[in-house]
Simulated scan of single mutants.
Amino acid sequence: MNDRIGFIGLGNMGGRMTRRIVDGGTDVLGFDMNSAAVTDAGAVPAASGRAVLESTDIVFLSLPDSRVVEKVVLGDPDFIPALRRGMIIVDLSTAAPSSTQRIHERLAEVGVEYLDAGISGGAAAAEVGTLTLMVGGSAAALERVQPVLAHFATKVFHMGAPGAGHSTKLLNNFLNAISLSATAEVMVAAKKANLDLATVLDVLNASSGVNFATLNRFPKIIHGDYLKGGLTNALMMKDVVLYVDHLRELGVASLNAPAPLASFGLARALGYSDEISNTVVDAIGDVSGSVRLHQPVAVDDAQ
């Protein structure tokens, strides 16, 4: 018998992943506090999260953070009683590994597998089904959900025990935050030095400074395309804080965290909190003499 699929949390990422599953020919029973998000993603609306759990076998969660995940899984009195032995819960959120491990232990008591599946690639990759997943938990459970994951992810790595997926996600996101904020600073400096920005990027991408931001973000940003729809400055800040907390638990010195914390904290303070994290370059530009990497096209010039 084919597993029935449920999805709780159909926001920016969850909605896109659900759409990929539905367009791949698999029905999804979905619940989100914003009911329009469920229908927009092509899912069958459920009256509640409990209704999703009672009618499906594999349930995906895509929620903002550990606080919300714990509120849904452990805090909702209807959640655990609605589970059935043999079900699999796949947590696609960015969460604290210690929280993930606690949830895994609680669900194991009722015979339910819990996979923590960190995501990389953002909204653009979710849109076309090319996400990368890093998964913690049972290898057998991962094998069972693999056909569903294949609708929205092209690379799936089994990282090990419960919490390993979310741990890897935090490490990756921190490097993403470092490269984005550092490249933003460099590009503002290049603009103020009157360098041709496209040529600067060509140099960086052929040299030791190359990174994801120089390859994939700034070739668009310098022309005014901020690649809307991805991780916001507030969420990037949240991820860096989670990384710092995780390193504290591991007993590892976090010597490089102050820079992205300062950059994305600045972006939040200047009103870019809910804008895509690529706008951190504008926040740095604001305090560097009102610098913009691109010049908006005037209405008269565009006609």
Rank of each mutant, 00 (worst) to 15 (best):
A189K: 10
A190T: 03
K192H: 05
A193P: 03
A193N: 08
D196E: 15
A198Y: 01
T199R: 13
V200T: 04
V200D: 02
V203I: 15
L204T: 01
L204E: 07
N205D: 00
S208M: 02
V210A: 13
V210C: 10
N211L: 07
T214W: 08
R217I: 14
F218Q: 09
F218E: 03
K220F: 12
K220T: 02
I221Y: 14
I221K: 12
I221L: 15
D225Q: 08
L227V: 11
K228M: 06
G229I: 06
G230K: 03
T232A: 12
M236A: 07
V240F: 09
V240M: 11
V240G: 10
V244I: 08
D245Y: 02
H246D: 09
L247W: 07
L250I: 03
G251V: 02
V252Y: 10
V252S: 02
A253P: 08
S254V: 03
N256V: 09
A257H: 10
P258C: 05
L261T: 11
L261G: 07
S263V: 10
G265I: 04
G265T: 01
G265M: 05
A267N: 00
A269V: 00
A269S: 13
L270C: 09
L270K: 15
Y272Q: 01
S273I: 01
D274C: 04
D274F: 02
S277Y: 02
S277K: 00
